[in-house]
Amino acid sequence: MAVHALPRDLAETTAAYDRRRRNELLFFGAVVLALAALPLAVRDVYAQNVIVLTLMYAALSQSWNILGGYCGQISLGHALYFGIGAYTTSLLYTKAGILPWFGMLAGGLLAAALALALGYQLFRLAGHYFSIATIVIAEAGLLLVHNWDWAGAATGIQWPYVPDSWATFQFGRDKLPYIYFALGLFVVTWLVTFLIEGSRWGYWWRAVKDNADAAQSLGVMIFKSKMAAAAVSAFFTAVGGSFYAAFVSYIDPESVMAFQFSLLMALPAVLGGIGTLWGPALGAAILIPMTEVTRSYLGGSGRGIDLIVYGALIMVVALARPQGLVSLFTRRPAPKV
C-alpha cells in the first residue's frame, strides 16, 4: 500500500505533513530500539513475562484500533479471531505436525475470511447493535468450540513438551524469543496503522467522521475499505492468538475465547487514545503491567483488593483523560470518534 501524500487537514501544508510523518517514523524507530534493548537490561523472568504480555496486547490493541478506532466499528468480539488463531495453530501442530509458523498464517487467513463474511452483514448495524452482535457471535463461537470434541472441547489442547527450538517456537525458560516476536508483531501492526493513516482509506474515514455528506458520496468505497480494515484487523488478531498458544503451550476455550479477551483488546486503545497511532501502545504499557502487578502482589489476599484497585484505576483514567493518555503528549486535539 503506497503512502499517498494527502494532507491530514487543510491547515497543514504538504511539506509540514511530510515532515511530521517522517518525525513520527523516526520516533517510532527510537522506541523500537529502546524496547529491543529493554529485555537485555531486565533479566527477571516475571518482568519479562509482563513485557511479553504488554507487547502482545499492544499489538492486539493496535489491530483492534484499525477497525474500532479508525473506522469507529466498536467490536467487542475480537476474542473470536484470537481464538481462531490459537486453535488453528494448535490443531494443525498437534494433529498434523504442521509447524506453528504455517498455522499462524493459516489462522490469520481464516480469521480474515471470516471477518469479511461477517462484515458484510454486520456493517449495516449501527453503534451498540453492532457491538452486541460482535459479542454474541464471539460467545457463540466460544460455545461451539467448547462442544467440539475433536478440538479437545473443554479439555483444551496441550502442546507436546519438546526441546527449545525456533521451528516449533517452543522455549522452556527463555522469554527473549517471545519478547522479540511480540515486538515484531507490534512493529508490523504499528506500521500498517501508520500506512493506513496516510492512505486514501485513512483520509476517507476521517472525512466521514467530520462530514456526513462525505459519507454519502463515498458510501460504497467506504464500505469496501471497512471490510478490508476488518480483514486486516482480524488477521493480526489471529496471529496474536497463534502466538499466545505457542507462548502458553496450552489452550482451552475459556482461556483464549472468553469475553474478557475482547475487552482486553479494546481497553488499551481506549485508555491510550482511541483512533490514534500511539494510543494502543501507551494504553497497553500502563494497563497490562498494572493488571499483572495488582494481581500478583495484591491478589494473594483473596479479599478482592486487587479488583478494587484495578477497577478504580480504569475508572479514574477513563474519567480523567477521556481523549486517552496520548493526549498528554500532543498539542493537537485527538480526533473525534
Binding site: 527477571d44 516475571y46 502458553v248 489452550i251 494481581r295 500478583s296 494473594g300
Partner: peptide, 23 residues
Amino acid sequence: IIFADHQGDPQKGRAEAERLITQ
C-alpha cells in the same frame, strides 16, 4: 507459604508459577 492468585486462567497460573519460582 506464599499465595498467588491465578483467577482460573492457565496463562496467569503459569506466570504466577514462574514468579514464585524465580522471585
